[in-house]
């Protein structure tokens, strides 16, 4: 879709969880990796995330969740994107995600799950390669 352009990433915190450190670090890190990061702060509803993702035409939505509500919150975002015909946007999830839930998230269509301790550089690399694969495919 945006040949030659910057990769645009929405970093969002869905739900009421206020632990922002991970999202902030990832936002800074992705900026320094050359991406354009849209940072919307705490307490985003799924609807807000979906509408932002679409208006900003982002390549990637990154959800940061540490409250244990990752399954239901991610489900809502995925459903919302699908309802708007925007399920081509890559969704990734980060936070405290117990092992058994990682596969469940992937089954929903989440591209990758990054647990605590993941280097931001690894997230950036994943995004860069996943986005370029998708663009070439599309």
């Amino acid at each position: 879709m945006n040949q030659g352009g910057k990769i645009r990433v929405l970093v969002a915190k869905p739900g009421l969880d206020g632990h922002e450190r991970g999202a902030q670090v990832v936002a800074y890190g992705l900026r320094d990796a050359g991406f354009e990061v849209i940072y919307t702060g705490l307490r985003q509803t799924a609807e807000q995330i979906v509408s932002t993702a679409i208006q900003e035409d982002v390549d990637v939505v990154g959800l940061s969740i540490l409250s244990g509500a990752h399954l239901s919150l991610t489900r809502k975002v995925m459903d919302g994107l699908k309802a708007q015909g925007a399920d081509d946007i890559l969704v990734i999830v980060g936070g405290i995600i117990p092992d058994p839930d990682i596969q469940k998230l992937k089954d929903m269509g989440v591209g990758e799950v990054f647990v605590s301790g993941t280097p931001v550089s690894a997230i950036a690399q994943y995004i860069a390669s996943a986005v370029s694969t998708r663009k070439n495919a599309g």
């Binding site: 800074y28 992705l30 900026r31 320094d32 050359g34 991406f35 354009e36 940072y39 919307t40 702060g41």
Partner: peptide
């Protein structure tokens, strides 16, 4: 880096 942190939506 050429990247940007776009935070006005906050």
């Amino acid at each position: 880096s050429g990247g940007a942190l776009l935070g006005d939506r906050l």
